[in-house]
Amino acid sequence: MVGVGIAICVQCGTASNPCRCKMVGPTLGFLAFAAAAIVEWPVGTLVYCFKHMKGRRMMAHPATVVYPSVTNAIPI
């Protein structure tokens, strides 16, 4: 028997909602991060061969821009 697991991200101790716990925002943020990383990391490694700083910024984009903006946009 094969089980399928669902990754759920939980962030507790936040002041953005009354229960002080977020579940939907971090989970959707992680999914958006993974989707952006699938595209941007291979392209970033190719760009890194020619322009080091530009390639580093492209590879860091999912972690520094995509994940925080999606997570903070959803207060639940």
Rank of each mutant, 00 (worst) to 15 (best):
E40D: 10
P68F: 04
S69T: 11
G29N: 04
Y67M: 03
C12M: 11
I6V: 15
P62V: 06
G5C: 07
V70P: 03
C12H: 13
F30E: 09
G55T: 09
P18A: 11
V39M: 02
T64Y: 08
I8N: 12
T27I: 09
A35P: 08
A32E: 05
M1G: 11
W41N: 02
K51L: 06
A60I: 01
P26Y: 07
C49W: 10
F33I: 02
M53N: 08
R20W: 10
I8M: 15
V2Q: 10
K22Q: 15
I6Q: 13
T64P: 01
F33A: 04
R56G: 01
A7C: 09
I38Y: 11
V66K: 02
T71I: 04
A35D: 04
P26L: 03
L28M: 01
C19R: 11
I6R: 14
M1P: 05
A36L: 00
F33D: 04
G44N: 05
P26M: 05
K22E: 14
I38S: 03
V70K: 02
L46P: 04
P26V: 03
A63Q: 05
H61K: 05
K54H: 08
Y48W: 00
A34N: 06
L46V: 12
R57Y: 01
V66W: 01
M59D: 00
G55K: 06
F33P: 02
T71N: 14
N72T: 08
V10R: 10
R20Q: 14
N72H: 05
V4F: 13
Y48G: 00
A34M: 13
N17A: 11
A32H: 09
N72S: 05
I8V: 15
G25Y: 09
L46Q: 12
H52G: 00
Q11N: 13
Y67E: 00
V24F: 06
P26S: 06
V2Y: 09
R57C: 01
A73I: 07
S69G: 01
P42N: 09
M1C: 04
A60L: 08
G25A: 11
T71Y: 09
M59E: 01
G25H: 10
V47E: 07
F30H: 09
Y48T: 00
I74L: 14
T71M: 10
K51C: 07
F50I: 07
G55I: 05
A35G: 14
K22L: 13
H52P: 03
P42M: 07
M23E: 14
G5H: 10
I6Y: 13
P18C: 07
R57S: 03
C21M: 15
S16D: 12
A60P: 01
T45Y: 14
T71K: 10
K51N: 09
C49M: 12
I76Y: 12
R57E: 06
H52A: 08
M23R: 14
L31R: 07
I6W: 11
A36T: 00
C12V: 12
F33W: 11
A34Q: 12
Y48R: 00
V2L: 07
R56Q: 04
V10G: 06
V70D: 02
S69M: 11
R20F: 12
R20C: 14
M58E: 05
L31F: 11
G29A: 10
Q11H: 13
V39C: 05
V2T: 04
H61A: 06
K54S: 05
N17L: 13
L28A: 00
